[in-house]
């Protein structure tokens, strides 16, 4: 029975073997064996097999696992792990306090923080807080008194500005 497969493709020309090779294939092979060799081969193999007990699953698996290609990387990994464990200094742990969610919310909406921020803007305000009762007519954020309505009207007349500007102001 010819088991050759005809594999299609551009490399099919590799199958063009010389004529003498094709012719030789049809001849009997040059190799021969002693008379009755194959009849006794099975018995001889069976004798050897009977001397060696069939290996269990572990018997098959352990020699495979015990090959250097398996145990060398495993051993080196273990050695490196042990060295890292003993040689590398232990890290000091620092605890960062974390405010819980409710505390953070309360901090965000506490109106006293806003008041403090405004008061901290100028020394004059601080002094006012410390020295006497607060009088907002005397205090302004720019450090100067606000102009009165009369002063603004006089300023507009003086500079002949349009009346719309007054309304805008």
């Amino acid at each position: 029975m010819n088991l050759r497969n005809n594999i299609p493709g551009p490399t099919d020309d590799t199958e063009n073997i010389p004529v003498f090779l094709e012719a030789l294939k049809k001849e009997a092979p040059g190799f021969k064996v002693p008379v009755g060799y194959f009849d006794t081969l099975g018995e001889r193999i069976s004798d050897q097999v009977n001397q060696v007990p069939r290996r269990s699953f572990l018997g098959v698996a352990i020699p495979r696992v015990w090959k250097p290609v398996v145990w060398v990387p495993v051993l080196s990994t273990v050695v490196v792990a042990v060295l890292l464990l003993f040689v590398v200094p232990e890290r000091k742990t620092t605890v960062i306090p974390v405010a819980d969610e409710w505390t953070q919310l309360n901090m965000a909406y506490d109106p006293s923080y806003a008041t403090e921020a405004v008061f901290a803007e100028s020394h004059e305000i601080d002094a006012a807080i410390e020295g006497k009762e607060l009088n907002f007519s005397e205090v302004s954020l720019s450090g100067q008194n606000e102009p009165t309505a009369e002063e603004i009207s006089a300023f507009i007349k003086e500079h002949e500005m349009e009346s719309e500007l007054l309304n805008e102001y």
């Binding site: 060799y37 081969l41 001889r44 193999i45 050897q48 097999v49 060696v52 069939r54 290996r55 699953f57 098959v60 698996a61």
Partner: peptide, 17 residues
């Protein structure tokens, strides 16, 4: 002959797996 015997002994030992 030696190689063939070794092959079949290996087959006996490993056919289970």
């Amino acid at each position: 002959d030696d190689v063939v015997q070794n092959i079949f002994i290996k087959v006996w030992n490993n056919l289970g797996s």
